[in-house]
Design a binder for these strands. Structure first.
Lengths: 225, 225
DNA sequence: CCATGATAGATCGTATACGATTTCGTACAT
DNA sequence: ATGTACGAAATCGTATACGATCTATCATGG
């Protein structure tokens, strides 16, 4: 009956999505205390669905939960950031490598167009748009990965990283420019039909910010971090 | 007061662990219907904690859940098995590579001892013990990985795979023997202080069952599957 | 002034109850 | 005999209520 999107979403699902979005866009900063009853009141539901939503967020690492104490938005730590980024570099690299031989010319064309738009963002200093387009760019590169589990891990990693960046870790200015250049290198590898392994390692290195070093000394095996 | 282990574990935690174990050891076969009220009765608690436990299991991929219908132990599919194994190969490989430079001589000694015991299991045909010792062996190799997120992913992968094997996919007879030989190769790489990248790829190839092919043509970049 | 213990408040954990949805069996019409 | 409609049973989804546990505040003694 409803032409709009699923209006039959369960309340726990709505609670989950609301909190997920608010954590993702920085409305809920790390350390913020999530009180079940307050959230339930705001959503106009009881605490049971809210509890379930929070446990799901906990499973994704977006909130921490302590028995009889409560939930707080996961706080950030340089080590945590590093670990998350490292994990993402591995799974996203693998996804990109697995997707490489399935990517279409149209995908590559769109990716190249996005990368040009990223350049514009750099010149006009549009960090928000940059982040969005950057996500789109990478989503194209790994999107054809035929293994849904790996794609799921990539999304989880992005979510965690996103939650972190929105709060305190923001783009390192110089890094963004470097990133766009690295994208170019990735596109060239893909267009040249390089081996999946080489593409995987390049995508991984891009995340770890050492693609250039990798390209310079690619005969030597690259360190993981 | 209680000298025994944590008696204060929440009921949802107990429900989770019970179901997790039963799925892991094959008591609950894929396709089995998990009815909240029945489990609640058996555990002597209400349905709310059971529901939470089941959603956790769902998040790990051990059960599937359908709104207003119920939960069933995740059924197995050759594709699902392949995807799970592939994911595990990637994250476990990465974990092993990251752990390589932290592994101790004592670790290697124990690993070698375990591998010898695995050989005994082969000769005496002890598949159950083989599986247990095999898990221990790999746990030693990747155990020193300093990134807890990656370790978590490895454990999730093992759990899913374990749930599958216990039910219908069992050890391929010939593969077990091959596996022990590949362990030997891994140990040699570790003892020789090979590069993390090389160890990562060897560990990954071991999972995908193609270490030998990899060793034979290791100049060429190995395909991911 | 500081340490310690008790009390009150806040919050979580779970039991119970009831409504919503699905599924399955049965009767009926074709 | 087969397909369909209807109704009952089963099961999930969530609201509400109450007990358990933690935290913070404050009084008391050193």
């Amino acid at each position: 009956m409803s032409t709009a999107a699923t209006t039959t979403a369960s309340k726990s699902e709505r609670a989950y999505q609301l909190l997920h979005e608010r954590i993702g866009n920085g409305q809920l900063v790390p350390g913020y205390r999530l009180v079940l009853s307050s959230i339930a009141d705001e959503l106009g539901c009881s605490v049971v669905p809210v509890r379930e939503a929070i446990r799901r967020l906990e499973a994704e690492g977006l909130v921490t939960f302590e028995r009889n104490v409560g939930a707080t938005v996961a706080s950030i730590d340089a080590t945590l950031y590093l670990h998350t980024m490292q994990t993402l570099s591995i799974v996203e690299g693998a996804a990109t490598g697995l997707a490489a031989h399935l990517i279409t010319d149209e995908d590559l064309r769109r990716a190249r167009e996005l990368n040009n738009q990223l350049r514009e963002c750099l010149e006009n200093f549009e960090p928000v748009r940059f982040t969005r387009l950057n996500n789109e760019f990478h989503a194209i590169l790994y999107g054809r990965c035929p293994n849904p589990h790996i794609l799921d891990l990539v999304h989880r990693g992005w979510n965690r990283l996103n939650a972190m960046r929105a709060s305190s870790f923001d783009l390192v200015p110089g890094r963004a420019r470097e990133s766009v250049a690295e994208h170019e290198g990735l596109l060239e590898l893909l267009e040249a039909k390089a081996s999946p392994h080489e593409i995987e390692m390049a995508a991984r290195a891009h995340r770890t910010g050492t693609l250039n070093a990798y390209m310079a000394q690619k005969n030597q095996s690259p360190s993981l971090l």
